[in-house]
């Protein structure tokens, strides 16, 4: 086993692409080290990307925000502009693990771990976030929902690294929110979760909406029917009821040690409804 710390993204990609055996990318390590400890992975090469310039930064650009792959969640929580623009994404990122884990974990790692229960992913999907991928054949930008292929699997090719997550600049009257259900108040993996992102028109009616559910299917679900329910509404009671119903219906959950199918179905709707109300209020709706 070797540990290397490349100083450029090209170096990192080159090393990963040319590595004959199993290689692992290390940013926050909060998933990788747990898997190594449990004997689930034994990489021959660990590529620590934290020394690559720019990967540890959050940049505010003309188009929005660019969040480097090695930025820990705790840093996102300290970025006032990002929190103001995308409170749902930031609160989701701040729900991953404990304070201790927050100091290390990254939303890119959360995405690439490809767990259907990843906290930041439904929020990012709802936000329409994009992933900037660097690989042997150059750069490409794809919607985050196309990164996970199934539990523990991604669509990334050999040698590819997600360099950054892009979030759009916010128009006026926009808000997002993320809620998850856990049995305790902290430290648990989401049993089921919901992210909602809304923009409103001048009259306070929903103009655009994205609704995503976590731990409700093998990958995060973008529920387009739920968005259609919301668009044009002011989140009246009937709309919220329909939202909950549509979300519950869209779930394809499993029974496991964290929850039952019935529980996940029911609570997915409850959370979507509650998240929608919060997102609406954040967007300035009443």
């Amino acid at each position: 086993m070797r540990y290397i710390r490349p100083l450029s993204i090209e170096d990192a990609v080159g090393t990963l692409a040319s590595s004959a055996r199993t290689a692992a990318i290390l940013a926050g390590g909060s998933d990788l080290l747990v898997r190594m400890k449990g004997g689930f992975v034994e990489p021959d090469l660990i590529v620590d990307i934290k020394a690559v310039p720019g990967l540890g930064d959050v940049q505010e650009t003309a188009e929005g925000f660019r969040i480097g792959a090695a930025v820990p969640s705790a840093v996102l929580g300290e970025n006032t502009a990002l929190k103001k623009a995308w409170p749902g994404v930031v609160e989701a990122a701040r729900l991953i693990g404990s304070k201790q884990v927050q100091g290390r974990c990254t939303i890119v790692g959360n995405l690439c771990n490809a767990s259907p229960a990843a906290d930041s992913v439904p929020a990012m999907v709802a936000a329409g976030a994009k992933a900037v991928i660097v690989g042997p054949s150059g750069r490409r930008t794809i919607p985050v929902e196309t990164v996970p292929a199934g539990p523990g699997r991604t669509t990334l090719a050999k040698g590819e690294i997600i360099e950054a997550i892009l979030l759009d600049k916010r128009p006026p009257h926009a808000g997002d929110a993320y809620l998850r259900f856990i049995p305790r108040t902290e430290m648990d993996i989401a049993v089921v979760s919901a992210g909602v992102n809304l923009t409103l028109d001048e009259k306070g009616a929903v103009k655009t909406a994205r609704v995503a559910l976590g731990a409700a299917a093998p990958t995060v679900l973008l529920v387009e029917e739920a968005a259609e329910v919301l668009v044009g509404s002011k989140l009246d009671e009937a709309t919220l009821e329909r939202l909950a119903k549509v979300c519950s219906g869209a779930c394809r959950p499993i029974d496991d040690k964290r929850g039952t199918i019935e529980f996940r179905r029911k609570v997915a709707g409850v959370l979507a409804r509650r998240a929608a109300v919060t997102a609406y209020q954040r967007a300035g709706g009443k």
Partner: peptide, 23 residues
């Protein structure tokens, strides 16, 4: 050894971390 109990907490460059989850 998996970041779930915090007994190994240390501060690394001003950030609280689990030392079991740092190489």
């Amino acid at each position: 050894g998996t970041g779930d109990c915090g007994a190994c907490s240390v501060i690394l460059d001003g950030r609280l971390v689990c030392s079991c989850l740092v190489l």
